[in-house]
């Protein structure tokens, strides 16, 4: 396994600076393939610490309607795994530091070929891969192949994950662990912060990797509340919903900035509180 990885570096920096991480998610190619890379740069300027880039899939069974529709639009414009890798490569020409995690479903990678994908992803500048339908039990071959290319496989823990299983997930975790804030699909309105905080405490005892919380985070106040106990906050559907209505590249870029900046400000206020 390669020792150097942008995800590890970034969480190291965040820890040193006592700064909560901000992780926006967007679906590659939505609403227009040409706007994705400029939007990613805008998100970094507005305070993103890491970007999750959604790989469109025809059957996104764990996603809610917002990300489903984003996937359908992107597929309608011919954006699949190959185009996503091109976008990452293009992003890397101007940004060598911001970690990128590809998020999606296994079949496109399986059909691409695991080894071929891992090498292509490394060359493009991908740092992590989160496959929603690859739980630890089935992730072995993918994890080993990615590790040889220095790419972290990101795993999830959920409210339904019990202690024995949590230990297995924690054991397998690399990069960071993504805690799914409620039992449901992306973008639903079901987050209960008190429950999440308790679970993050349990996870903290089980693993040393950074802990990110996502699913259902919409408002800056929610980000701030989560940042009080987690290492990073993931925001997906709320941003994707904003971007969906963009009329051109400049509009997409300005929507991305306008959406993310208040979350950054809320998180920075948490940092001040932590420092005090």
């Amino acid at each position: 396994m390669s020792a150097i990885n942008r995800i590890d570096d970034r969480f190291g920096e965040l820890r040193t600076a006592n700064r909560p991480g901000l992780i926006p998610f967007l679906t590659a190619g939505d609403p227009d393939p040409a706007w994705t890379v400029p939007t990613m740069h805008a998100l970094v300027e507005a305070g993103a610490d890491l970007i999750e880039l959604g790989v469109p899939f025809s059957d996104p069974m764990a996603d809610g309607p917002v990300i489903q529709r984003a996937s359908e639009r992107a597929l309608g414009k011919g954006v699949g795994l190959r185009r996503v890798l091109e976008m990452v490569q293009s992003f890397r020409t101007q940004d060598a530091a911001t970690p990128i995690v590809l998020m999606g479903y296994l079949n496109p990678i399986e059909i691409f070929g695991l080894a071929r994908f891992a090498e292509a992803a490394r060359q493009a500048g991908v740092d992590g891969v989160l496959m929603v339908d690859a739980p630890v039990e089935e992730a072995g071959p993918l994890r080993e192949t990615l590790a040889r290319s220095g790419i972290r496989e990101i795993f999830m823990a959920a409210p339904t994950t019990r202690e024995a299983r949590l230990a297995r997930v924690a054991q397998a975790a690399s990069g960071f662990l993504y805690y799914v804030s409620f039992a449901g699909i992306t973008g639903a309105d079901r987050i209960t912060l008190g429950d999440v905080e308790g679970r993050i405490r349990e996870l903290r005892a089980a693993t040393a990797v950074p802990l990110a919380v996502g699913f259902g985070v919409k408002e800056p106040a929610q980000s701030a509340a989560i940042a009080a106990f987690a290492d990073a906050v993931v925001i997906g559907s709320a941003l994707v919903e904003r971007l969906a209505e963009a009329t051109d590249e400049a509009d997409a870029v300005s929507r991305a900035r306008a959406f993310l900046a208040p979350h950054r400000a809320a998180l920075d206020a948490v940092r001040s509180a932590r420092a005090a």
Binding site: M61, A62, L106, V132, D133, A134, P135, E137, E138, F155, M156, A157, A158, P159, T160, T161, R162, R165, V169, V180, A183, G184
Partner: peptide
């Protein structure tokens, strides 16, 4: 075969 699902469903399937 196997179980290729989101983490949330792993315990319910078990």
């Amino acid at each position: 075969g196997g179980a290729y699902v989101a983490e949330t469903l792993m315990e319910p399937l078990a």
